[in-house]
Design a protein around this nucleic acid. Structure first.
Length: 673
DNA sequence: CGGAGCCACGTTTTT
DNA sequence: CGTGGCTCCG
């Protein structure tokens, strides 16, 4: 097996430069993932590095999984002798659970997601005697999270950042927020990184241990690391400095979440001896698409210098289309897909017939009906700036019978029934978890309300005991009926605790479904209840796959996995259909044909970015990401009027369209008259 | 305590 | 236009 076969010169350099710091600037479609995978394989075989001393960090579980599988395929060895490949959060969580006792946390701490964080913050605001309505807990959480991604502690925030009313309020909430997490034996997502950084800084001997173990470090999507992740990486790379980071500053689209692509631009400051390797040859797209993408990025102010090029054919022009409104836009996309899909498949399977007209705009593109069964539809994607835009597209697809796959929207683990079940299980592992306790009482236990639950919570807090201790209730001033309900709940948990060692997670979920009465509640004959129950069935499938085995250990593993694996489409089976998703979700994907819809001022670029040049730059990069998803053909659409939240707005073509060189585009105005 | 109606609000979201 | 969060009442 030749690991270097089929790689270009630059890629080979990136694969074989195994010692010292390496920065790989990998343009869109330049074979970045391939290079990474080959580098891992090269380390393990040609260099005979032992798997346990290699660590590869990604941002998404999907990327981690892909890397794992593809290295496996390349090496053809069992996954047991694999290096550790995982997301920043999952890897750090693993470390943190191992070392938790050093910072006085149990190893089975809960992991709080955004919902949980918000509940916690709302409670703190209430405790401070402030009005939750006037404050927007979301904004406070956002500020805290941003501070945390910059490794700013509550104390530092108070002294350095608290300058006006809002930031002073944030300081107040933040200083109570961290102790609140501790009281709950919980960490939030940011903590999974931060606490490890702080732990390493406070315990150099522990850091040393990790540095000694992981001699070879690989970080993917480096443009997306925030300050905390940057420090985390730098600490771990330590003195060996065998750190290879791969990324593309042009594809930095998460700076609003604390990602700082400056980290990629400043890499050489920390590592002056770094080898910088640029992967500029694109294997994905046509010359036209690459020229257009370069034209967009030429105008970016702050960026690493690189130019994408390709040996691929010139390809088709980029079609710019003006349509009447979002309905016409969706109709155009749908009929165009049907037309194109027909060209590629058995014609007998596709029959066109205009279906009943809407009555509103009968002149506009009569929708054809899709009768196909081919799976070429995977080759089409419709990308938009905001999730709200998916509605018109979905409707057009449904009307035409065109199968589609919607990425994003309400995520599986954010569904109420799922969160409820998980809260129930989480409380079993961590009975100090007040957020889960609240959920269990309020959503899954009849007869309990906010007032009595708050009283119990308060009593537990003053006595420093967990919520399930019966003795606790003696001093709580609630009616005897409610006291009985609490006692029943506590008893139920005791029972579950006893059964736990013998039960698989699947069985445990069944047990909870029955004993909590949730199953009974959901079997109320409504389809909604049915759907919720089937979601829980799906959760059981996840449990079987990700956490087989029995008892506490399996349950802990399951809870960690589902907390950290919130991936959108990991649960959606890849069914046939065109893909509908936001530009953000599109990063890392590729399609033969891409429709960029809503290319209007105020949408792409988004209105909220117009007054800030830096945010505008991010919109530009977003546009770049959109264009470079396409292998063969790009359509850009804008509507001359668009209905948003019930009101009609005039549509002005996006500035980015005007920046595309005229020679590359073909503009058509689809006018109904 | 919990359901029904009313009002406010509305980017992007890897973990 | 829809959703979700809150209030009021039974």
């Amino acid at each position: 097996m030749d690991i270097l076969a089929d790689l270009n010169k630059k890629q080979i350099e990136a694969v074989t430069t195994t010692t010292g710091p390496v920065l790989v600037l990998a343009g869109a479609g330049s074979g970045k993932t391939r290079t990474l995978i080959h580098r891992l394989a090269y380390l393990l075989t040609a260099k005979n590095i032992l798997a346990p001393s290699v660590l590869a960090v990604t941002f998404t579980n999907k990327a981690a999984k892909e890397m794992h599988e593809r290295v496996g395929a390349l090496l053809g060895r069992p996954s047991t002798s694999f290096p550790l490949v995982g997301t920043f959060h999952s890897v750090s969580c693993r470390f943190l659970r191992r070392e938790a006792k050093l910072i006085d946390y149990p190893s089975h701490f809960s992991i709080y997601d955004e919902d949980d964080q918000l509940s916690l913050i709302k409670n703190i605001i209430k405790d401070l005697g402030l009005n939750v309505k006037q404050i927007q807990p979301r904004a406070v959480l956002g500020a805290i999270s941003r501070a945390k991604s910059d490794l700013i502690t509550p104390t530092q925030y108070e002294t350095d950042k608290a300058v006006d009313y809002f930031t002073k309020l944030v300081a107040q909430v933040y200083s109570r927020y961290q102790p609140a997490l501790r009281a709950n034996r919980a960490f939030d997502f940011d903590d999974l990184i931060n606490q490890m950084v702080w732990l390493w800084q406070a315990h150099p001997e522990v850091l040393k241990r990790y540095q000694n173990q992981f001699n070879y470090l690989l970080v993917d999507e480096y443009q997306d690391v925030n300050r905390a992740q940057y420090v985390w990486t730098k600490l771990l790379a330590g003195e060996s400095r065998n750190l290879c980071v791969v990324g593309d500053d042009w594809q930095s689209i998460y700076s609003w979440r604390g990602a700082d692509f400056g980290n990629i631009l400043r890499f050489a400051d920390d590592y002056p001896e770094a080898r910088v390797i640029k992967l500029e040859q694109n294997y994905r797209s046509t010359k036209i698409i690459i020229s257009a993408s370069n034209a967009i990025m030429e105008r970016a102010e702050l960026k690493a210098d690189k130019t994408l090029w390709t040996e691929n054919p010139k390809g088709e022009s980029i079609s710019i289309l003006e349509v009447e409104d979002e309905v016409a836009e969706a109709n155009f996309v749908v009929s165009e897909v049907i037309k194109l899909a027909q060209g590629k498949s058995n014609e007998a399977e596709l029959i066109y017939e205009p279906i009943e007209e809407t009555g509103l705009l009968p002149q506009i593109t009569p929708i054809a009906r899709y009768y196909g069964v081919d799976d070429d539809l995977h080759q089409f994607a419709v990308l938009y700036r905001t999730n709200a835009q998916s509605r018109a597209l979905e409707e057009a697809c449904l009307k035409a019978g065109l199968p589609y796959q919607l990425i994003g929207g309400v995520r599986f683990y954010e569904r109420r029934e799922i969160k409820d079940i998980l809260a129930y299980l989480r409380l079993l592992i961590n009975p100090f978890d007040s957020i889960s306790f609240r959920r269990v009482c309020l959503n899954l236990t009849h007869g309990l309300g906010l007032t009595s639950v708050e009283l119990v919570l308060q009593e537990a807090q003053t006595r420093q005991v967990n919520f399930l201790e019966e003795a606790l209730l003696k001093n709580v001033n609630i009616s005897s009926a409610r006291r009985e309900i609490f006692k029943k709940l506590a008893f139920l948990y005791k029972e579950l605790d006893k059964l736990l060692p013998k039960l698989s997670v699947t069985k445990l979920i069944d047990e909870v479904l029955k004993k909590s009465g949730l199953e009974e509640d959901l079997l109320d004959g409504t389809t909604e209840g049915e759907i919720r129950l089937s979601n829980i069935q799906e959760l059981k499938t996840v449990a079987e796959e990700r956490a087989p085995g029995k008892g506490r250990e399996a349950l802990e593993q399951f809870l960690t996995e589902v907390s950290l694996w919130q991936d959108q489409d990991s649960l959606n089976k890849r069914k046939n259909g065109i893909t509908l998703m936001t530009l953000h979700s599109a990063k890392g994907t590729e399609f033969k044909t891409v429709f960029l819809v809503g290319m209007e001022e105020g949408l792409t670029p988004h209105a909220s970015s117009l007054d800030d040049p830096r945010e505008l730059e991010e919109e530009r990069r977003l546009c770049y990401v959109g264009l470079t998803r396409a292998k063969e053909k790009v359509y850009c659409l804008y509507a001359s009027s668009r209905r948003l939240f019930g009101t009609v707005y005039p549509g002005i073509p996006s500035r980015f369209l005007g920046e595309l060189p005229e020679a590359l585009v073909q503009t058509t105005i689809i006018n109904p008259f």
